[in-house]
């Protein structure tokens, strides 16, 4: 059996080898895809599907310049980060309050489902009327879509607490802030983190969308601008940049998730044996 399956990686003795192998698995497919892209576009003169070299040129030439970065990319990312952080904070706080208050939950849950079902894109014109076209509107668009998974997952997590652990906390009189810090929020954290993961990807999409209407700057605006000017390699460069941002965000999330939920993964591994 010389075929190296990912399963086998876990049992390899050397951690250095294991690290190399996991890096190999992570970058292997992207390398193959780029190679395929390169081969497919050799000798092609298609306007819409430029070769990787041209896209990379456009990426470095039109995107990774200090002017574009400071005018378009960084403000977009700042809005994304602020919007997502707002969603997480609002979602966790409101979700905890709603989840811990049965009558409030009964009152709000149908309405929450209703609001969640509305695609935030259709709210953009309304929010524009209400909030204008500045950063506040863009943040509102991001939050209006990405807050729901955090909020609803927190409600579920806070509500679905183990009755034995609830009795334990009650009988040892663990109350108030301590109860939330050491019992309620950790107990809900696996579900909250699942909500945060969704919140991040929705937030990134909405960051782009919020810049597609009545905007004059931003990553999303610039991609649409290049598209309309038939600057196709530049457009692809922006898309590549966006994808890279997504990968970095996912990697950061995973790091945080492993720290926050180390007990959860650990106990599940033990339970599986």
């Amino acid at each position: 059996m010389s075929v190296a399956l990912p399963r086998d990686l876990r049992t390899r003795p050397s951690s250095g080898l294991r690290f190399l192998a996991s890096v190999g698995f992570a970058v292997g497919l992207p390398i193959l895809l780029v190679l395929g892209w390169y081969l497919a576009t050799q000798g092609s003169s298609s306007l819409y599907f430029p070769s990787p070299e041209r896209v990379i040129d456009a990426l470095t030439g039109s995107w990774l310049t200090s002017a574009t970065m400071s005018k378009h990319v960084v403000p977009s990312l700042v809005r994304f980060v602020v919007g997502v952080l707002l969603s997480i904070v609002i979602g966790i706080v409101a979700g905890t309050v709603i989840g811990a208050t049965p009558w409030l939950r009964a009152l709000l849950e149908p309405m929450l489902e209703f609001f969640r079902a509305i695609p935030p894109v259709v709210l953009v014109p309304v929010l524009m009327l209400l909030l204008g076209i500045d950063d506040t509107m863009k943040l509102a668009v991001i939050v209006s879509g990405s807050v729901w998974p955090v909020l609803l997952n927190t409600v579920e997590g806070v509500r679905g607490m183990d009755p034995v652990l609830t009795d334990t906390s009650r009988s040892f009189r663990i109350r108030g802030a301590l109860k939330y810090r050491y019992f309620v929020l950790p107990a809900a954290s696996p579900q909250i983190m699942a909500g945060v993961r969704l919140c991040l990807s929705i937030g990134l999409i909405l960051m782009v969308i919020s810049e597609m209407f009545a905007a004059s700057s931003g990553l999303g605006y610039q991609i649409v601008y290049f598209q309309r000017q038939y600057m196709i390699p530049e457009m692809w460069g922006g898309i590549l940049l966006l994808g890279t941002v997504g990968v970095i965000v996912a990697a950061i999330f995973q790091l945080v998730e492993r720290r926050v939920l180390h007990w959860y993964h650990g106990s599940r591994e033990v339970a599986r044996g």
């Binding site: 183990d162 034995v164 652990l165 009795d167 334990t168 050491y182 019992f183 950790p186 954290s189 007990w263 959860y264 106990s267």
Partner: peptide, 12 residues
């Protein structure tokens, strides 16, 4: 409690 696995805080 009887259910020791559920009466201890697994995150602590």
């Amino acid at each position: 409690f009887q259910e020791y696995g559920r009466s201890l805080y697994p995150w602590l």
